[in-house]
Design a protein around this nucleic acid. Structure first.
Lengths: 245, 245
DNA sequence: GTCTATAGTCGGATAGAC
DNA sequence: GTCTATCCGACTATAGAC
């Protein structure tokens, strides 16, 4: 239930115990269990993943799960925290860059659009292109559809920030109030254009009659989203965008 | 695994058995079990829903599930078929209307856009406004994220048709080839603008700081999607749309 | 067709040796 | 910290009375 049990996580990768034999050879049991959790929870969901399967996948003992995490749910929370850490590390920089551009009053419209493209490509990459994307996204999306006690980990630490960045970006491009309902919903709709390709990838692949999205597909998706934002910001409010600083 | 066991479903609502007592008073066990499946599978997912909970929710006996559906998975398939039937009945007419407009060479751009608005409002309604929307959508979305043997029921009978309609509509408005990858992906992106509000509704409500989407929100969402399609069809190809017939 | 009782399996968590 | 053995509850499915 709580998440106060995954504090001592970032340290002691090397000193795994009293007997100093082969401590660095294999990652700590704790880390391997989190890795197994990412894979198995992502593939089958929380309920359908058994502690026995997790322990086997991690090459760990069944009792290690209650010992390290207090139980299956504690492991799930640790997995959630790990996913947020990695995703923030991957998209954080481009998000920060986009925010900086938006807050720079001297930035021209083209600068903002360039930051938009960079950010969208980063998101396409983290969601659709990387090998761990599938597991990560499946867990995040499951929590969106059917929130559990782990929902706040994803929302407060990741989704709220991503949505906030979209709001700032769209506000800068359209001149709408960043706190308005209109802009809040437009930011969600924009994110939806990306998210659907992860969520409904099985349908998309069936429709495209292929077994994975290739680089051309990913480039096309990124372009479509950027085009849509540009089109929105033109039709929505031709004013505001006082270009050429 | 198979779905050849839900054939005799549409008949015999009244003749429930040898003893003719109270056959119409309460819906047949079969129908009540499907209703329970819609609610519980939608709330908790397939794995997390037990046959005991299903039987209790339906006011039926535990043994009725293997008897009527061959097992828990058979019930799940029957639930999937039921959901597709109801959703098709609700959005089918407006989809057919939109297709008819698209195929009418005399239709003006405004006619196509009017059909678009009608269809979008119907989809917003079925996904976000109706009481059964939550259960229906949760099951459909779960199947998108983590497909099971029931996936083809949703894809072949429902999603493929909805996506196909979007392709025809966008093709008519943009002049792009309906079979092109570009248009296929644009149709998905457009659907994503709607779907995200169902999928990430927990996040959206938290961000909006309210506990349900009211009519103003729904109207705004429908308008945003229609605006985006219009903006796309203008920027994407200012040609094609030979208005005023 | 519906019920009770039960079989057979698997789930998560724990105890205690090492 | 890690392992083995085990408890106990919950699960799905079935058998057989009615």
């Amino acid at each position: 239930m709580e998440q106060d049990m995954d504090e001592h996580m970032d340290k002691d990768m090397t000193a795994s115990g009293p007997r100093g034999a082969a401590p660095a050879a294999r990652a700590g049991t704790r880390e391997r269990l989190i890795g197994a959790g990412v894979r198995l929870f992502g593939l089958h969901g929380f309920e359908a993943t058994s502690t026995r399967a997790l322990a086997t996948e991690a090459g760990a003992n069944l009792g290690a799960i209650p010992y390290h995490f207090g139980g299956k749910e504690g492991l799930y929370h640790a997995v959630a925290g790990h996913i947020v850490d990695v995703m923030l590390a991957q998209v954080g920089p481009s998000m920060a860059g986009a925010l900086a551009v938006c807050q720079d009053p001297a930035a021209r419209r083209e600068d903002v659009l360039a930051a938009l493209r960079t950010t969208v490509r980063g998101m396409v990459r983290i969601m659709l292109a990387t090998p761990e994307a599938r597991s990560f996204s499946q867990i995040v999306l499951q929590e969106q559809i059917a929130p559990t006690s782990a929902f706040p980990i994803f929302y407060e630490r990741f989704l709220k920030r991503v949505h906030g960045m979209w709001c700032v970006l769209l506000a800068r491009l359209t001149g709408l109030d960043p706190e308005s309902t209109e802009l809040t919903l437009r930011a969600f709709a924009t994110m939806g254009q990306l998210v659907i390709f992860r969520m409904a990838m099985a349908s998309a692949l069936r429709r495209l009659d292929c077994d994975r999205l290739d680089d051309a597909h990913l480039e096309c998706i990124a372009r479509i989203v950027c085009d849509q934002v540009e089109a929105m910001t033109e039709s929505c409010s031709p004013v505001c965008t006082e270009a050429t600083s």
